[in-house]
Amino acid sequence: MASLQQAVLDLKNLDLLANGNSPIHRLDARAKVLVSFVFIICVVSCDRYEVAALFPFCVFPVVMISLSDLPPLFIIRKIALICPFVLAVGILNPVFDREILMQLGPLGISGGWMSFASILIRSTLTVGTACILVGVTGFTAVCQALERLGVPQIFAVQLLFLYRYIFVLTEESDRASRSRALRSCGKSGKGIRSFGSLTGHLLLRTWQRAERIHIAMLSRGFRGEFRSPKTSRFGTPDLVFVLGWTVYFAIIRSFDIPRSIGALLTGGGL
């Protein structure tokens, strides 16, 4: 996580995007959480050699991005950052799976390449959807939706607290590590000893902060239970949104539409 600063900045940006006012933004967070989840399940459940059949799923992110005015480049950049882990594991597929599965003229494409392509498309779709979900909903609203969908309150609250203090603490640790870097003249001083006490100090300060927050909570009548002042309604548009997309996903998941179109065009049989 060398670029954690950048990531925290992205976090703020993503959160600001969620302040937008579009038909998608206005939907109940629960509807968006549910649809995203159905989407991901449908995508990952496709066969491992499936490439073309995944394409109709692109309609969902594209429509979401267009309707909600999210900057597509921002999302694409986030997707491009996804862990090299997928690539590292996926790239070995063509090595191990050399069975020719498809003939494109003189070019034989092996099952390994097909599944590799499939893996890449899947991760683009699933990671992109997670990004879009946060971008059109906001992390806070996602957490509150989760709570109302049955996640234990203490866990939902934990997520909110964590998110809130990421900003405070990363700034603090940024200051601390910068001051160490300034005094360590390059290499020396960056060893485990100074690391231990620096991080330890940060930890103790964090601990004290938690105690202060607790006092602040008690001072305002906290007795162990969070009561939310907000009540959003799950209305007709939300229902239409959930049902519409679920039906669409079900259809493209069970009928291979690209294949039918392709067969129609190329004149080949199904």
Partner: peptide, 19 residues
């Protein structure tokens, strides 16, 4: 409650300190 939240955030923050 606040302790868990803040320590979670601490994990992120601590990852900015390298050695």
């Amino acid at each position: 409650v606040p302790l868990m939240g803040v320590l979670g955030a601490f994990i992120f923050a601590a990852q900015m300190i390298n050695f």
